[in-house]
Computed example of a mutant assay.
Amino acid sequence: MSKKLFCAAALLLAAAAHAQTTAVGVWKTIDDETGKPKSLVRISESNGELRGKIERLFRDASEDQNPKCVSCEGALKDQPILGMTIITGMKKDGEGYGGGQILDPASGKVYKSKMSLSDGGKKLDVRGYVGVPMFGRTQTWVRVE
């Protein structure tokens, strides 16, 4: 019996360790200006590509709890931000991820993006940029699960 328990515990630990070496999971985004939580984004993987979808927005009671992306263009114009896919095309690139895009629902702008894990997989540095990575900014997201 103890051998089975040991094996089960080892498998759980291995799964937890693997989860920390990938960007797949739920991440809390932090507002650059206020330092307060802004949203929860679930990053999932399909066919080697990462996609990120907004699962929750942290908003004051006085604010619209289900805002629309009024600044977005094309098919996303006036669509609910909650449930919106904001990260697309991200693929493993050496130690991090690259080749993808990230949408800023506040401005409606789409940026090239790259991401890398830090702090043992507890943080995700997400860089959005125009042209080359030097011309952009990085947000640090915090792993929730």
Rank of each mutant, 00 (worst) to 15 (best):
I30L: 02
K91Q: 14
D93P: 03
D119N: 15
P80K: 02
G48Q: 03
G99S: 05
Q65C: 07
R42P: 07
S62H: 10
D104N: 14
G121E: 05
I54R: 00
T138E: 09
Y97M: 01
T34V: 10
V144R: 12
L124Y: 01
A14E: 10
M1P: 11
S2L: 12
S46R: 14
L76F: 02
E73F: 05
S118W: 06
I81T: 00
R42I: 10
E145G: 14
A106Q: 14
N66P: 06
T21F: 08
L57W: 04
S2N: 14
R137S: 13
V26Y: 07
W27E: 00
K112M: 08
V132G: 08
A9E: 10
C72S: 00
K77P: 05
F6N: 13
T21G: 13
V110T: 14
Q101P: 08
N66D: 08
L117C: 03
K4L: 12
D119V: 10
G108T: 01
K3I: 11
K77A: 10
D125W: 08
T140W: 03
P37L: 02
V130T: 15
T140K: 04
F6H: 13
V24W: 01
P67L: 03
P133S: 09
S39R: 02
D104R: 06
G99V: 01
G128Q: 04
K91R: 15
A8S: 13
A14W: 09
C7T: 15
K3Q: 12
A19V: 05
K91D: 06
Q65S: 07
D78G: 04
M115L: 12
I43P: 00
A16R: 10
Q101K: 15
K53M: 13
R127D: 04
I43M: 08
P105L: 02
H18D: 11
L40V: 10
S44A: 14
T29E: 02
R143C: 02
M1L: 12
R143Y: 03
P105Q: 03
S39M: 04
D32A: 15
G136T: 07
R137G: 13
D125H: 11
V144T: 14
K112A: 13
S62M: 10
K114E: 06
F6D: 13
G128K: 01
T140A: 06
Q65N: 07
V132Q: 12
M90S: 02
I102N: 00
P133T: 06
L11S: 13
S113L: 04
D32K: 12
T85L: 05
V142M: 08
G52F: 00
T140H: 05
V41P: 00
G131C: 07
K92N: 09
G98L: 00
